[in-house]
Nucleic acid binder design. Sequence first.
DNA 1: GAGAATCTGTACCGAAAGGGTACAGATTCA
DNA 2: TGAATCTGTACCCTTTCGGTACAGATTCTC
Lengths: 160, 160
Amino acid sequence: MIRITKQTDYGIVLLTHLASAPDGLRTAPELAAEARLPLPMVSKILKALTRSGLLDSHRGAKGGYSMTRPAEGVSVAEVITSIEGPIGITECIDDVPGECGYAATCGVRSNWNRINLAIREALEQISLAEMGPVSSKSLVSLGGARDQDGQQPGGTEATQ
Amino acid sequence: MIRITKQTDYGIVLLTHLASAPDGLRTAPELAAEARLPLPMVSKILKALTRSGLLDSHRGAKGGYSMTRPAEGVSVAEVITSIEGPIGITECIDDVPGECGYAATCGVRSNWNRINLAIREALEQISLAEMGPVSSKSLVSLGGARDQDGQQPGGTEATQ
DNA sequence: GAGAATCTGTACCGAAAGGGTACAGATTCA
DNA sequence: TGAATCTGTACCCTTTCGGTACAGATTCTC
């Protein structure tokens, strides 16, 4: 199956929650409670998002995490790349050249790159603001009162 | 990572080889030797492609596999679906409704479906004929002399 | 300055999926 | 009748992912 990992799925939800925080700041335990996810998992995801520059971390007693950019300016592709690495459905990723030992004789390589690019572009066109439930209402009410409503990830608990 | 399975990768290569067969017929051992893959693996993949209608199987002494349609008319999406099942990067696939227990409260569901659709469309626009090395030369010379050149899948042997 | 609260980093374990193999059976042609 | 082929099932091994635990560093508050 062509699937994103659960961590990425969780990451999208966590960022959506963070974007809805009135003061723009949330601690890891707060986010874990809101998204109903285990704290160590949340902490691991937030760390990855911080290292990639999507989040700012504030240490100390009144610390927490805050977004470096508004949700409208963050694409889903950025979130996936932050947590999983470069986007591509095969190991043939033009961002990482020279990794495939069969590149010289492999005829399908350049064509897979075309497909990888198409998928990447599709993911880059969706912003984080469009992923939340607010998308069906108003995209500018991100600072409003909307949290702790028990949102869950995109269906990762379904059949398996 | 968003990845197709090796079986799908192999399947693309096997179909490319099959499309280049002069008489349009190849046995599983022949294809295994050409693609340099283990026979049981090849057999398993060919069976899946046969069940989905992409291949015809001919049993008996002079049997083998042949394509039911020309490579130009087979999309990469069809091959992936034949081997892996419905295409979608989350379990939220609109082809399989009612599987997600959180659908009622999950705000990101409809947006993931948009992304899944975009990816599916990208894969449907690439035909099998465009995946082979012949794509850079001539698409109509599929019946020509081009085989057993040791082609390998799309880079699955790279780093791991 | 001490203590509490927070983020940071590493290491580890168990479960699940995928990759790969083996074997017995059914079918067709010579 | 026998050889060659496809069909189907079952099984094991490896890798990856999800999840947990623990020690350390930083910052604010009293």
